[in-house]
């Protein structure tokens, strides 16, 4: 292959300039967060990024500390408990929502049943309702059902988002050919078996993506727990970190350290699932 030469053209330069600009926008706040989490109170107020001073490498080491992380885990804040709460809430919601959305989306794409059109319209209609509009009525519902201050009250409304049903419907239409389902039907699988053994593995990239999406949504959910949960020991990270701030005094170092701790599990999950974003599993199954 000698025809492949590295060349710099105007579009290439423009694209890369744009990518660099976007990268800066993304990376700088993250960098700011990481550095700030390791600074003392004074260091935070005096320097935007690394505290410059007389120490080694031109850094004022006396303004850097890991004390904030220690404070997070002390009993007055109790971030350990909140971390466990958040992981439980997010993981449960993600697994349930992904399974239910995949099941419903698959059914709506691949099966014929009475009221299918009505179901599809309902899903689409639900998509256009802005979530804040539902805060008051769902609070009322949860109250009626006696689910306030329980994890069920927080998880249940989140396990069947219309967005997810729609997403899996499209994914099924795109990557699960009807003939494969028919082949499985002839091979003797029942309808639920076809979904579980044939369709779900073919939807794996979407499953991975949606697990991350739903996990993140619950992880970052701030309003929900504020409204539904009342007991302090049930609160997740998002709320607990916010509660470190008071009306008169913001402890930025603590806030930054807490935020950094809250990012790590999500970053790990993403690294774990990211290949599913890329994998095109269905390629080669049928003649394209």
């Amino acid at each position: 292959m000698n025809g492949k030469r590295f060349s710099i053209s105007i579009p290439w330069v423009l694209v890369h300039l744009l990518l660099i600009a976007v990268s800066i926008v993304v990376i700088v706040p993250l960098l700011y967060l990481v550095i700030s989490a390791f600074k003392t109170e004074q260091g935070f107020l005096e320097h935007t990024f690394i505290p410059i001073g007389e120490g080694a490498l031109g850094i004022d080491w006396s303004q850097l500390t890991i004390r904030q992380f220690g404070r997070l885990f002390e009993s007055e804040i109790g971030i350990g408990r909140a971390l466990v709460n958040s992981v439980f809430l997010s993981a449960t919601t993600a697994v349930l929502a992904t399974f239910i959305c995949a099941l419903a989306g698959y059914a709506s794409a691949a099966l014929e049943f009475k009221g299918k059109r009505a179901f599809e319209w309902l899903v689409l209609a639900a998509l256009i309702i802005p979530p804040p509009l539902l805060i008051a009525p769902s609070y009322q519902w949860l109250h009626t059902l006696g689910l306030l201050d329980s994890y069920t009250g927080l998880i249940l409304p989140a396990v069947a988002p219309a967005f997810g049903v729609f997403l899996f419907r499209q994914a099924t239409l795109q990557s699960v050919p009807k003939s494969i389902l028919e082949a499985a039907r002839i091979d003797g699988l029942g309808e639920f078996g076809i979904f579980l053994v044939i369709a779900l593995p073919m939807l794996r990239p979407m499953v991975g993506a949606f697990l991350i999406i739903t996990f993140l949504a619950m992880w970052n959910n701030f309003i929900g727990p504020q409204i539904v949960l009342q007991s302090a020991e049930k609160q997740p990270l998002s709320v607990v970190i916010y509660q470190t701030q008071t009306a008169y005094y913001s402890d930025y170092g603590l806030l930054m350290a807490g935020t950094l701790v809250s990012i790590l599990p999500v970053a790990a999950l993403f690294l774990f699932l990211q290949r599913d974003f890329i994998a095109g599993l269905s390629s080669g199954a049928v003649k394209g």
Binding site: S179, E182, A183, A184, R185, I186, G188, A285, V286
Partner: peptide
């Protein structure tokens, strides 16, 4: 009678192989 109980086998135009299974598993599946 359901397709699986008709004792038939069908070959489709687009092959309809299970993409996540090996050839061996595809053949052995039913």
């Amino acid at each position: 009678v359901a397709p699986k109980d008709r004792d038939i086998a069908m070959v489709f135009q687009n092959y309809a192989l299970y993409p996540h299974m090996t050839v061996e598993k595809n053949i052995a599946f039913s």
